[in-house]
Structures are given as structure tokens and as C-alpha cells.
């Protein structure tokens, strides 16, 4: 049994312009201790899909219109707010995108680290603080005792994200969802934070869902990858397989638009032409068809089914026979 399995999740938002669907029936699984990436550009629905797992979508205006989110065999979508609170921070925790704004500016680091431990693990203040010191050491923050008494504005962005990671692992969850955890950080810090998350989750046996727009991150850190486009998963599979032989033109486009050191310097980066569709007005067929160089008539009228390749690798594309490379692009 998978640790987390999302089935046909559909959700949308009520807006003054009417119902806008943000996620159109996505399914993916996460096994215990595994690192799974969800890749997509802004507006592809990857963040709301992840927030829905923890019940963090404000309803209204958000609305989950279909699907199941099974965690450890139970459907989280059927949980009450009170039941969800026993999951959040305890079994599943989350690391957010903006370390500069994800810590409360008026509360001390110690307070923000210990409150969940005291609530979920029933620790005393002293015990929680002692554990907080250990956790800060674990995420590579020097002089943890002093840091506990400090406030977020005393810390740099990278340090704050380390604190967020320490908070995320504090109650020994089995799953961490990280929403673009390094997007807001300097490039040099990005690699450190990702390596730290990989190391910690491997060491502690925690599963990690990492949401990103950066395929480079996927290649280095993820076991499996789900590529999202316009609220659908268009390709999924083992990271090496997707990276070496992508099946969907969108994934190929993403790979070609990432600068790479292993290619000659004069090969230009190829951006994907056009821009993502308006979620309120999705085309009837494949949502990527208007931007796809290989689109045929059928792509514009019928949503492509999931085509299976070797090793559980799948892609939703009518044209994989034409587009999928024989070897690495």
C-alpha cells in the first residue's frame, strides 16, 4: 500500500467570472521514504494540488469537486478539521516557498519550533526546547541555543529555510511536502538546502514530495517525477527514465529550456513558444496542443489517454511515437 495516493483529484475556485478548475483529475502515489517530484510552471496547479492533501485550501472560494486523497489507507478528504489537525505537522508536514515570510515575525524561533512538538508530542517546554536545539544542529545551524531566543529577522533566508525544515521534521512525520523550497533562495544556497532535505529524509526514512518548476532539481534528487500541465499530470515515471527518454512534448520542452553544462555552449536554450492556457478556458483536447510543434488534428479535439512505456513510465500524448526520443535528448 502506498503511503499517499491521490486519485483523480479535481479542484477549482469560485471566482467572479465563474468556476475555474485548477486541478483536473490528477493521480499519483508516494511510497514510504521516497522522493517524488511534481514539476510544472506557475499556474499548472501543482501548489494547490499539494495544499489540498493537507486540507489547506480555503473553502470557499476553493472547492474539491472530486477524487480521493488516501494517506495510510484513510481518505483525508473525508476528515473533519479536527481530524486533519492530528495529521498536519504530526504525520505530514509542509515546507513553504518563501522562507522570508513563512516565519511569524513577532514570535521567537524557539517558540515557533516548539509549539507543534508540545501540542503533538506532549513535550514540556524544557524537553521541546532541548529537542529544538538538537534539530537546529541537525539542519546545520551553528549556536542553536542562541538562535532559539532570536527572531526571524535575525536570520538570513537560507537559515530561515533550515529552521522551516527543522520544524517540518520536528514531530517525526512520515511525509513532508515541500512547495518550491528553494525558489526564493540564492543559487548557492539552493543546492545546500536540497542536499540537506535529501539527506535528512533518507536518513529519517521520511517520504518527500517536492514541488518545483526546475527539472534540474528532479534529475538530482527525485526518485520519481510527475509533470503537470494545466491542472493535469501529463507525464510520470522514474526520474531517470523521464529525464533520459521523456514521452511528452511539454517535458521535452522543459528539458530543452534548462541550461545544461553537458552540452556545447553554442547550443541555444530553446524556450517553449506561447504561454500556458487560461484555466477558465482550457482547450477541448490536449491543453498543450496550441504550443506543441507536433500537434495534429486529434490533439485539439480529444484529451489523450495515458500511454505506457517501460517501467511504469507514462505520458498523455497522441504523438509519442513521433516525439519520444530513442535516447537522451
Amino acid at each position: 500500500m502506498s503511503l499517499l495516493s491521490v486519485h483523480d483529484l479535481e479542484l477549482g475556485f469560485e471566482t467572479p467570472a465563474g468556476h475555474v478548475s485548477a486541478v483536473n483529475g490528477i493521480s499519483y502515489t508516494v511510497e514510504p521514504g521516497e522522493i517524488v517530484a511534481i514539476v510544472g510552471e506557475s499556474g499548472s496547479g501543482k501548489t494547490v494540488a499539494a495544499q489540498a492533501v493537507l486540507g489547506l485550501i480555503p473553502q470557499p472560494p476553493g472547492e474539491i469537486t472530486g477524487g480521493r486523497v488516501e494517506f495510510d489507507g484513510e481518505d483525508l478528504l473525508g476528515f473533519s478539521e479536527q481530524q486533519m489537525r492530528t495529521i498536519r505537522g504530526r504525520r505530514i508536514s509542509m515546507v513553504f516557498q518563501e522562507p522570508m515570510t513563512s516565519l511569524n515575525p513577532v514570535l521567537s524561533i524557539g517558540r515557533q519550533m516548539t509549539e507543534a512538538m508540545r501540542l503533538h508530542l506532549g513535550l514540556t517546554r524544557e524537553a521541546a526546547e532541548q529537542r529544538a536545539v538538537e534539530l537546529l544542529g541537525l539542519v546545520g545551524i551553528a549556536d542553536p541555543g542562541r538562535r532559539l531566543r532570536q527572531y526571524p529577522h535575525h536570520l538570513s533566508g537560507g537559515m530561515r529555510q533550515r529552521v522551516m525544515i527543522a520544524i517540518a521534521i520536528a514531530c517525526e512525520p512520515v511525509l513532508i511536502i515541500a512547495d518550491e523550497p528553494t525558489t526564493a533562495l540564492d543559487v548557492t544556497i539552493q543546492a545546500q538546502i536540497l542536499a540537506l532535505m535529501q539527506d535528512l529524509t533518507r536518513r529519517l526514512g521520511v517520504a518527500l514530495v517536492i514541488i518545483t518548476h526546475n527539472l534540474g532539481v528532479v534529475a538530482r534528487y527525485a526518485d520519481r517525477v510527475n509533470v503537470m500541465y494545466a491542472g493535469r499530470i501529463v507525464e510520470q515515471g522514474r526520474a531517470d527514465s523521464v529525464y533520459r527518454r521523456p514521452g511528452h512534448p511539454y517535458t521535452i520542452g522543459l528539458l530543452n529550456s534548462v541550461p545544461r553544462l553537458d552540452r556545447p555552449r553554442d547550443v541555444p536554450i530553446e524556450p517553449i513558444p506561447g504561454s500556458p492556457p487560461d484555466p477558465a478556458r482550457l482547450p477541448p483536447g490536449c491543453a498543450f496542443a496550441p504550443r506543441c510543434l507536433h500537434a495534429v488534428e486529434r490533439c485539439r479535439s480529444e484529451v489523450p489517454p495515458s500511454i505506457s512505456f517501460e517501467g511504469g513510465h507514462t505520458a498523455r500524448c497522441w504523438q509519442t511515437a513521433v516525439t519520444r526520443p530513442e535516447t537522451a535528448p
Binding site: L54, T86, R88, Q97, S102, N104, E115, A116, L119, I167
Partner: peptide, 22 residues
Amino acid sequence: KTEYIQVARSKGLMRWYILLQH
């Protein structure tokens, strides 16, 4: 609307606690 309130919710804290303390 801020992110740190979202973070507080993701920790599983009680609603009234988030409102009054955070």
C-alpha cells in the same frame, strides 16, 4: 492572508491559538 498563518495551520495548531497567538 500571510504565509506564516498558512504555516501555522500546516503545523496542526488550533484555530483559536493561531488567531490569538500568531
